[in-house]
Amino acid sequence: MCVLASILPTSFVLALLFGETRGFTLRELWAYAFTSDLPFIDATILDLRLGRALVATMVGAALALSGAMLQGLFRNPLASPSVLGVTSGAALGASIALVLLGGLGPASWLRFADTMPLVLVPAAAFAGALLVTALLVVVGLRGASSSMLLLCGIGIASLCGGLVQTVQSIVLRDWELSASITAWSFGSLDDRSPVHALPVALPLAVALLMIPFLHRELDLVAFGEDTARALGVRDLRLRLQVVLLSSLLAASAVAVAGQIAFIGLVVPNFVRLVVGGRHGTLLPLSALSGASLLLVVDLFERSVLAEMSLQPGALLSLVGAPIFLFLIIKESRGQGYW
């Protein structure tokens, strides 16, 4: 527990010290943080690394926490923000925005094209994700069970996925445009500023503050929905809270950094293997581990793989999936897992 908790600050500091260009010393970092008598170029590089590290922390934590909550609610280790359709909704919003900005929209928009993608694409992604969230909440309010909600999410996800593909095949003729959409769908942390961390930090703060009101309920849901109800859990309210929180987390993370797969699905499972299924520890530790993992993987990509541009999602899957498979196979011998 303490080990896990110390990984985050350590990796955060390392993410500032090392990168594609020069490494800094702790003394220089100190100067950057408190005395600001660094050469301009060094300060600029540290600004960039700080923005990147903050966004990685927030996005990693948000995706992992979102996945952990959903897995608890649906009692299914396969649940993650993407099965709810929230990520696909965001992808749809972003693609539409990119296409409108890329020349298929009104000509007047192009005048703003220099600054609009910075705001409009994330905003559209967020709007797309919110639309899906609203749909799920409506379905949830009508009293759908958890498995119904899950199925609804999967349906919405494939609908949005189909629409994204439609948009993509329409603009396939436009190299620049399809390159932008593909780049977005890979997900990236490139050149985010600290401001980008803010829209993720807000829902993350709310979700972390809500953990005391959710973790026991989610523990009880593990015994079955009926048992949880019989023990006094307000199941409808719990479902709505979890779906809303995890959707907001995923929506903001995806809006800022694109689709970074793997974290939402694997990190909570990973943490569950290590510390067990009590949500009181599982939820905060998932957030912590998601943040640390994304920071470390991104640091690795920036410092070691300098000559190769690899997106965090791809790298995460390459590095994390084999370890995860090994753990699962080891664990599944004899005792079972969930």
Binding site: E20, T21, R49, E176, D190, A306, M308
Partner: peptide
């Protein structure tokens, strides 16, 4: 290999030409 601000800053440019 990477079109990233930090990489580009490493070359201390006065002007960056890109698409």
């Amino acid at each position: 290999a990477k079109f990233r601000a930090e990489v580009l800053f490493g070359f201390e440019p006065d002007l960056v030409i890109c698409d």
